[in-house]
Nucleic acid binder design. Structure first.
Length: 591
RNA sequence: GAUCCCGUAGCUCAACGGAUAGAGCAACUGCCUUCUAAGCAGUAGGUUGCAGGUUCAAGUCCUGCCGGGAUCGCCA
């Protein structure tokens, strides 16, 4: 379904073409000043020079043309403002008809950006096996999951891949440490995946052991040799390393799933670096044969520098001088896999901005090596560094990293307190109350994170993350739940939403805002920018709240008006539901 | 040193090159005897880091400077 602005753009394009003006200037947008008009087109001004005319005169001509084409059906008012803005206001009939169509639209106002359903591989989350998930995984997971939903709603077929860090030397280190300490191997021989306590015990043990093993690896040469030995053993899929790794991976996955479930973040694929392994050797051979991979200082590299580079782009190292692979190699191997398996139109990485150069190298090498053709877009949708309130990289008070589950638990605890204070959810059964607290907490955390511009650095502020007033997730839930409760109450009284809209001044602003949804979804999808959705959701909630505060609905005696207002409530609720679902935020039935 | 990102209200952030730069928090004033006050209505708060330039129009594009962060071959 098109937005009103899009519909008006189409008409205005006709007018521009008829006047011999370039139609790409005909774009209509929501007016910057609501007092003046509902919509505006700025196209007359850039046309002025080429047409050698006064922009206001061009605007007048466009308006005349629009009137002739339209015949009074769409435009209620057209005028020239300032240096040559074309101000537009639509007729009441047009607006109410658009609303009625919107209410029946099965796509809920989502635009179609990929009519053929092109495939997108979306790489996000990326937690490491044998480590606890921490706040550092929050952004990638939340943004990635939102993009999965958003691009999916816009018509793409999205394949979300968690891309685990589950391969290489870190695994060898851990395995070597276990084998070194005989008493611990018992954990593996007795491992029973059906026993949650066993699984948890092993996970906790790995989390504790990992940093110690890493420290040993640094200091102890003999241990380093063992770690390398078992890394090789793992890569050759030999025992015992391979079997132990399978358990390590499985246990870690269970722990991760718990975290992702709590966050409401989902994936279509649980692949990892290990899945790239089988593609690497043939790929390296192929790159050597093509002469793209070259020897340099004992390593095998793919030079990716270009003459017009402003900066120095170092070559991508395929094989270290000791023959081991690096993560650039793994990423290339993963690309081989994805190209064969998923045939995507785009591959998007939701990874920290600091890895920008790395992806630049990988993308260039992939093009150069013929792994990914130019027709497939490679995108690093990076996000800013997560800092503490002091502007420095985030640390807990104790100086460590905060576990993701601790963060969520804190949010839920705070949500419980606030529900109690606000006397919400009072008469609910305990299970439902707990569910509401969880939804409120997740809404708070996700919205606080997603509302930031993706590329900017990010101040990780616990107080802000668990805020419930103002521009927050819980505010949006609160508004949505209020609407739901109102609609239920109305239905009990036999008052139902009408199919035709009657708009008075208080609700027209809300109605116009609802019609904007396709524009915001398209903009967010094209820029991989969930914060645009956050902004829009907040505006809708705020506008509804204003309407709600100014118009009493159930006591309205004019039945048509009451029905129209209820329909507007229903439409608003559905809009909030759609946008919030694109953000990965669930609305409770009541609270 | 080179390159990239960022610099907007006291704080946290918005603003497809377009009209009078907007929100939230914090501060202040009102509003619960009608649908959920996690709310609503309002007040106050700005030389968009600085200086030039391009443009009918610059927070936005270009150049230079200042400040902060990040990255720059065998870690991921």
């Amino acid at each position: 379904m098109l937005s009103i602005a899009q519909k008006l753009t189409e008409v205005t394009e006709q007018a521009f073409s008829a006047l011999g003006l370039p139609p790409e200037y005909a774009r209509v947008t929501v007016s910057a000043q609501a007092e003046t008009a509902q919509f505006q087109c700025n196209g007359a001004m850039p046309c002025a020079k080429a047409a050698k005319k006064n922009p206001r005169q061009i605007a007048e001509e466009v308006i005349e043309k629009l009137r002739a084409i339209d015949g009074g059906k769409v435009f209620a008012a057209l005028s020239v403002g300032g240096p040559g803005f074309i101000n537009m206001t639509v007729t009441e009939d047009f607006l109410t008809a658009h609303l009625a169509a919107l209410a029946k639209d099965t796509r809920m106002g989502c635009p179609v950006l990929s009519p053929d359903g092109e495939f997108i591989v979306l790489d996000y989350g990326g937690p490491n096996v044998a480590k606890a998930m921490h706040v550092g995984h929050l952004r990638s997971s939340i943004i990635g999951d939102s993009l999965r939903r958003l691009l999916g709603a816009a018509g793409y077929v999205v394949i979300g891949d968690v891309h685990l860090g589950d391969w290489g030397t870190p695994m060898g280190m851990l395995i070597a440490d276990y084998l070194d300490k005989q008493e611990d191997s018992v954990i593996f021989t007795n491992y029973d995946p059906s026993r949650p306590d066993e699984v948890e015990r092993l996970m906790n043990d790995m989390v504790e052991r990992y940093p110690k093993a890493a420290a040993r690896f640094k200091e102890d040469e003999a241990f380093r040799a063992k770690a390398h030995f078992h890394t090789k053993q793992l890569q050759d899929k030999e025992q015992p390393a391979f079997g132990m790794w399978q358990i390590i991976r499985e246990v870690s996955k269970i722990a991760m799933e718990k975290n992702f479930l709590a966050l409401g973040v989902r994936f279509d694929l649980w692949k990892g670096e290990s899945d790239a392994h089988d593609f690497i050797a043939p790929m390296v051979e192929d790159l050597k044969r093509k002469g793209i991979a070259q020897e340099s200082d004992g390593a095998l590299v793919v030079p990716v520098a270009r003459e017009d580079d402003k900066k120095e782009v170092p070559p991508l190292i395929l094989l270290k001088s000791d023959g081991a692979v690096l993560y650039g190699t793994t990423d290339l191997g993963t690309l081989v896999d994805r190209m064969q398996e998923n045939k995507p139109a785009k591959i998007i990485y939701v990874v920290d901005q600091r890895q920008g150069l790395h992806f630049e190298q990988v993308f260039r090498a992939a093009r150069k090596g013929g792994i990914v053709p130019d027709s497939v877009e490679l995108i690093h949708a990076g996000f800013g560094t997560m800092n503490g309130p002091d502007g420095k990289p985030f640390k807990t008070r104790a100086g460590g990293v905060m576990k993701l589950e601790d963060l969520i638990a804190m949010g839920v605890e705070k949500a419980r307190e606030r529900l109690k204070e606000a006397k919400l959810a009072e008469d609910m059964p305990p299970a439902e109350k707990e569910d509401v607290a969880h939804k409120v907490a997740i809404a708070a955390i996700k919205f606080a994170d997603l509302q930031n511009n993706r590329v900017a650095d990010y101040v990780f502020d616990l107080d802000r993350l668990t805020m419930f007033e103002g521009k927050t997730g819980p505010y949006l839930l609160y508004q949505a739940v209020r609407i739901n409760s109102l609609l239920k109450k109305a239905a009990e009284q036999g008052a139902l939403p009408a199919e035709t809209f009657i708009l008075q001044e208080p609700e027209r602003r809300l109605a116009l805002l609802l019609c904007e949804m396709p524009d915001h979804i398209a903009l967010a999808a094209r820029n991989y920018a969930p914060h645009i959705l956050c902004d829009y959701a907040y505006k809708v909630a705020q506008e509804f709240s204003s309407f709600y505060g100014n118009c009493h609905i159930l006591s309205e005696t004019n039945e048509g008006l009451r029905g129209s207002r209820l329909a507007l409530c229903a439409l608003t609720h559905r809009h909030l539901q759609v946008i919030l679902s694109l953000l990965g935020i669930q609305i409770p039935e009541r609270m």
